[in-house]
Design a protein around this nucleic acid. Structure first.
Lengths: 205, 205
DNA sequence: ACCTGAACACCGTTCAAGT
DNA sequence: ACCTGAACACCGTTCAAGT
């Protein structure tokens, strides 16, 4: 076969298949991707510049599959909450993707739009100057860190039975690994909000 | 050459060389590691179980190179601050290591000891039951997220010149990328502390 | 116990050749 | 424009063979 009348590959199909592979195994490779689509490895390069672009396309896909509605949000706290929750939900649906995103610069326009909204909301909240970037970094660190937690819910800390009594005790107190992630996220978001609120009161006054 | 009278490889030398490679290039491979030590690739397996163990040993190395002193800390806030700062400093010295740690479960005893201290400090602060794990997760997400930020200080968000005015404006307000990381960390740590403090007041009362 | 070299099963990317 | 197969330069890990 050479050039078919209708293309065998589409970028969308590529991203879908790659995401399936990541969901199933935590990784993907071009040979496996090609096999899943039923196409040769090298033909992928007719649609995409390489592995990195596929990764970035996956980020855009999951972010756009988890939209947020700022119009429905009343006040900066609700708006910030809905952005961070949507980000978390995106990775909650594809937890094994988060570790792969870490080496990659954000280029996807959907994701940049999310950060743009974040900047607007924080300015609306009252942050000014350098504090805006600092606040974005803080929110971002929090959200990324939690997305990564989701990737390894039951193995983040695996202390041996002896030693580490405080850590072992704390883990025993918690709910199941899945619930733990959810509870910790809500807890963390509350901490984050309270912290930002208190910072605003300190500087505005 | 076969078995030399004195071993050509030590685990310490392995970790040192691997860390140098990561610092220089952001990654390491067994062939390159072997070449740097002047030894054959396969002989590495006489000292270490494989690539994963080397990664875990690197984590232990940098954590132990950035100690914290809890005795000097007065109160839970100072103690928490010194743990989180030491964690951050460890990765600040080897920023390109952080992304590689992300796929890996924590097994190193030095690092588990750090989490054990974290659990103790949070209990000392007044957190109880499930909240202890949630608080650890929150602190951990924050610290990990910032460590990752350090790995790509000037390229985290690279918005094109047009569009994204709020994001672009915020980035322009900030200091240089390096200072930005530092300022954002201090800002974030303050937010984190304030949030935890406010949560304690809400539950204790 | 500790090293070597060869071998194996993987990678990502390029490129000439086909239609 | 879009596909194929071969080729290249890499990986991590195993294993028989040496001392």
């Amino acid at each position: 076969m050479a050039r078919p009348r209708v293309p065998l590959i589409s970028v969308d199909a590529l991203v879908t298949a790659a995401l399936e592979l990541v969901d199933e195994s935590g990784d993907f490779s071009l040979p496996k991707l090609a096999k899943r689509i039923g196409v040769s490895q090298s033909s992928i390069y007719n649609h995409v510049s390489g592995r990195e672009e596929i990764l970035e396309l996956m980020r855009g896909r999951i972010i756009s599959e988890s939209p947020y509605d700022l119009d429905a949000a009343d006040g900066w706290e609700a708006a910030l909450g809905s952005i961070v929750r949507s980000y978390r939900d995106a990775f909650a649906r594809h937890p094994r993707l988060a570790p792969l995103m870490v080496l990659q610069t954000v280029q996807d326009s959907q994701v940049l739009a999310l950060y743009e909204d974040l900047a607007k909301v924080l300015e609306q909240a009252g942050f000014r100057g350098k504090d805006v970037v600092s606040a974005i970094s803080t929110v971002d660190s929090f959200a990324l860190g939690f997305a990564l937690d989701l990737a390894a819910p039951d193995v983040v800390w695996a202390p041996p039975a002896d030693g580490y009594p405080a850590l072992t005790g704390a883990l025993a107190q918690g709910a199941s690994p899945e619930d733990r992630g959810g509870a910790a996220f809500d807890f963390g978001l509350e901490i984050l909000m309270a912290g930002l609120r208190s910072r605003l009161q300190a500087t505005v006054r």
